[in-house]
């Protein structure tokens, strides 16, 4: 037991040292959503550490006090049934802990889904992020440009990523900005993020999607709104337009570097939302579906804020 404890503490020390030199990615936040989650993670780590310490302390106490070598030879352990007070405690305390974490969970879950506080009034920048094997395509309908495997966003402006997939299920994840969300072929998910500071970040697909999964990453850059605007202007001045033929080529499985185009693929290949909902009803015109469908799909698709 002692060796194991020493080991545990050793590992904890390693963790602290590592955390000391350079914060772990999910704690090195660049936006309010990630910061909320980071706080939640710390609260839960601390709460849970208390639980672990109590259990380990009780265990050590039992093992040290009641080991056979410490007892007289003729000691007969007593027969003890349960005790209502003790059982009330071992039920009650976990219930309180779980209730506490439930409140945290519910509040934070609502908060990370919504547009971050203080940004509700701003018009969000809509960016469609669609995945194909094994790339990410970013379409800016407002700016009428499209990029591959990298995305620029302005700071201090809410960004609404609309996620979907051209192939398998993937998961859009920029750890320093927000938690991940799935991108699927038959629906569009929304992810609201805001970047507080200009930064270079890593994003990736975190959901296994085949051979090229490991390299399925993209770069994220947040920059001042002025610089963002001039970046857009640059693209319109220099980049080639995206044709349907070109885009079909891009969709072929494989890896591509970073690419830039004017125009978006949404013009000829709309996202699976609204009337293009991927449910492919021959007859019905919208995506008003059966109850069972709504339950397993999501509100976010139907809910236009």
């Amino acid at each position: 037991m002692k060796i194991k404890l020493a080991l545990l503490f050793g590992l904890l020390t390693i963790a602290t040292i590592l955390a000391g030199c350079e914060p772990l990615l999910v704690f090195d936040t660049k936006g309010p959503q990630a910061a909320t989650i980071s706080n939640v993670i710390w609260i839960s780590i601390i709460t849970m550490a208390v639980v672990v310490i109590v259990v380990v302390a009780l265990l050590i106490n039992m093992l040290v006090k009641y080991r056979a070598s410490k007892q007289p030879e003729d000691y007969e352990p007593p027969h003890i049934e349960g005790n209502p007070i003790v059982e009330a405690i071992i039920v009650g305390v976990p219930v309180l802990i779980v209730a506490f974490l439930s409140v945290i969970s519910v509040m934070s879950t609502y908060s990370v889904e919504a547009v971050p506080e203080g940004y509700e009034d701003q018009e969000p920048l809509v960016i469609y992020a669609s995945s194909s094997d094994w790339k990410w395509h970013f379409s800016y309908p407002e700016q009428d440009i499209e990029t591959v495997n990298y995305v620029f966003i302005p700071t201090h402006r809410p960004v609404e990523f609309r996620l979907y997939s051209h192939t398998t299920i993937s998961s859009f994840w920029i750890p320093q900005l927000a938690g991940q969300k799935y991108a699927m072929a038959d629906m569009v998910n929304k992810l609201n993020v805001v970047a507080d500071v200009p930064a270079e970040m890593i994003g990736r697909n975190s959901n296994f999607n085949g051979e090229g999964f490991a390299e399925n990453t993209f770069n994220v850059t947040s920059l001042d709104p002025d610089e963002f605007d001039s970046w857009i202007e640059d693209i319109h001045a220099t980049a080639e337009p995206l044709t349907e033929e070109e885009f079909t080529k891009l969709l072929e499985p494989g890896h591509l570097g970073q690419m830039t185009f004017t125009g978006t693929h949404l013009d000829f290949l709309p996202a699976p939302e609204g009337e293009h909902g991927g449910h492919n009803h021959g007859s019905s015109e919208t995506d008003q579906d059966s109850a069972g469908h709504e339950e397993t799909n999501t509100e976010s698709e139907h809910d236009h804020h």
């Binding site: 449910h279 009803h281 021959g282 579906d289 469908h293």
Partner: peptide
């Protein structure tokens, strides 16, 4: 049954 109910309206280009 549960799966059927979820699929009942997912008729694609086929008949209902």
């Amino acid at each position: 049954f549960a799966t059927y109910f979820i699929y009942a309206d997912r008729t694609g280009s086929g008949p209902t």
